[in-house]
Design a binder for these strands. Sequence first.
RNA 1: GCCCAGGUGGCGGAAUUGGUAUACGCGCAGGAUUAAGGAUCCUGUGGGGAAACCCUUGCGGGUUCGAGUCCCGCCCUGGGCACCA
Length: 755
Amino acid sequence: MDAYDPKQIEPKWQKFWEDRGFFKVKEDPSKKKYYLLEMLPYPSGRIHMGHVRNYTIGDVACRYRKMRGFDVLHPMGWDAFGLPAENAAIKQKTHPAKWTHENIDTMRAQLQSLGFSYDWDREVATCDPDYYRWEQLVFLKMFAKGLVYRKASAVNWCAGCETVLANEQVVAGKCWRCDTPVTQKKLEQWYFKITDYTEELLNDIDDKLQGWPERVKAMQKEWIGKSEGCEIDFEVEVSKEKIRVFTTRPDTIFGVTFMALACEHPLLLKLAEKGGCKREIEKFIAKTAKIERMKRLAGEYEKEGELTGAYCLHPVTKARLPIYAANFVLMDYGTGAIMGVPGHDERDFEFAKKYNLPVKKLEEFVEAKGLGKKTVTFRLKDWLISRQRYWGTPIPVIYCKKCGIVPVPEKDLPVILPKDVSFSGKGGSSLAKHKAFVETKCPQCKAVARRETDTMDTFVESSWYFLRYISPKYNQGPVDPKEAAYWMPIDQYIGGIEHAVGHLIYCRFFTKVLRDLGFLKLDEPVKNLMTQGMVCLGGAAMSKSRGNIVDPDQIIEKYGADTARLFILFAAPVEKDLEWSDEAVEGMWRFLGRVWKGTVDRGPWTMDQQKEAWKHKTIKRVTEDIEKFHFNTAIAALMEYLNSGEMDAETMVILLSPFAPHMAEELWAILGRKESVLKQPWPQWDPKFLENQTMQIVVQVNGKLRGDFEVDAGASEEVIKQKAQELEKVRAHTAGKQIKKIIYVPKKLVNIVVC
RNA sequence: GCCCAGGUGGCGGAAUUGGUAUACGCGCAGGAUUAAGGAUCCUGUGGGGAAACCCUUGCGGGUUCGAGUCCCGCCCUGGGCACCA
């Protein structure tokens, strides 16, 4: 027989699956539906090992579910808008669309060469007008419902990308894409009112996300950052104006010795003027805005304040409290003003005691006296979605001098992103310089008007793409409601942990919005979530900039897709980081070679008790491990099966097929089977073969291992205890000692306790 | 600072309703094959010891006949949040 040659067999079976439409999926009410989804890639150029890992995990789950008789929807698409396409356009003098589509073609071919089981008829690219027109429609519906608004405020600005960023895109004070330190800029921008959904987003974490990792749920709760407290008014001396502070500890009110305001606080300058310290405060504001911002974001930061010269009165004691401007008080959290309680717990506690006020009652006391009221503050802020970039979904809005902000009428959708733009690199969005796009008529008064030239954050596209796969050609809305009712929710979602608070909150938000807009009848999009670890080399995540990349194509070229898939599953548990090892890849190659040889060269074959026992034990282990995503131990079980010398080739090939599908198909054919191995039902194990005729009993003396013996499965406790004591080594340790007691763990162990 | 996850051979990792620690793979050593190398196959492989045995799951206590697993106290690593009032 020929040696194992993946180069020959892999393309052959990929074509076989393709020609027969094996992965095309339709609604099939005779089966149970299973929506399996992996996070879609950004078409950056080539597939990297992180993709291979993510999609191999998904592919095993898909093939397994199909063999278990599920109707599996397993689609793939492209998160195709984004800044790298524009940067490439500038650098390589090409067009973002061309660059993107070429990358998609390359990466699609790479995914196909790995044998992944996608229904390519449902492929979606988010830069396609047929895709983003529905996003624009959703935008308009959200606008009509008040879920989209425009607001001027200090926003995160990345000078490298020349655009604003959402809070979720600022990581440790730096831009998530290019690492440029983020600065603040005052701009008028578009926002999605995600804060309308804060309570629901928070409550559903515990109520409806039982299939999510605790880690992700904890991260989302922290991100939403609910904190309950009290708002209390402090009267300003002389002017009778009131300053409202937020505190989570109203019980510390008697410890207040000063008040501090954020530099952006609207009353600050007025107070400073009154206090005669206007110049000092202005200087302080300028200093804080300029230098401190950078330090603040970097985490190195010194607490500083400046007296306004003004005073406020303690609401209970009427004591005079100095008002400061302070650089650590944030305008966008609470009320932008705090009450200073330097002594915090102990002193406050004593103070309260002195005035005979029970600590627990202070909150009620504050409320009853009308000094303040209970409030809830969240960390989560509205989602800033406008981007000053060309390669994104145009925001469907027109500015008219007379009518103001006018939404584009639905019948005029899509607002198409023009292709004929020039890319200079600097000086703002290319779209804003496109006259024919910018100049338009007001849909209401027909006067000359200007189109919005900002585009949407690319995270908007990925917030609902999973719905488009369901009915990719549907032309009455983003998703066919009937099909959505059948396929949603996503039964299993697989992707990187880095999306825990960005994408995975946004897509939950969008689902709720689409529900409230009448597109869906669903509260949560994802039933079960699996987050896989990173692929590392030399202890650090593989990345182009670090130069520690292993190219998947090289591995496929040298060993084939099956070896690559097997290695990436075997090397580490799926949720942990994986360290790349060329030697371990060799090990997988050897394993597959031995499976090949063992199957192809197998001699006359008859099952016996021993072989049945191995077979059923292996089916059980592999099945249970796949269900739990314990692919590394599932593969180990297959290795042990091979090593046992009791391997039944048919069973081996079927169990191996989700992991190494090409080899499995080839071997299945060599074994003389006509149908594809994918059409085989997943085997069941029969417990009756798992029961051994004999059992091994381990013997301990005082908890230390002293021997073992084989005994008939039906042996009685007395016989076993007797046999245990007769073992030579056991006698050596019990001789001359008194046996206190003998513990028997059925079918496993005897422990003889002596003095 | 607060919260979460983890710490097991030379390495990746198995095993937790408490019951044979180190499965499986890599690496290493010896052997077979080969003119030789590579590839492949076989055997061995936690540490100490001639052996009997003893020691070993980050460290220190505890519970138990028996602890990688449970309890208490520490140390370290990774991740998340953070001048959030």
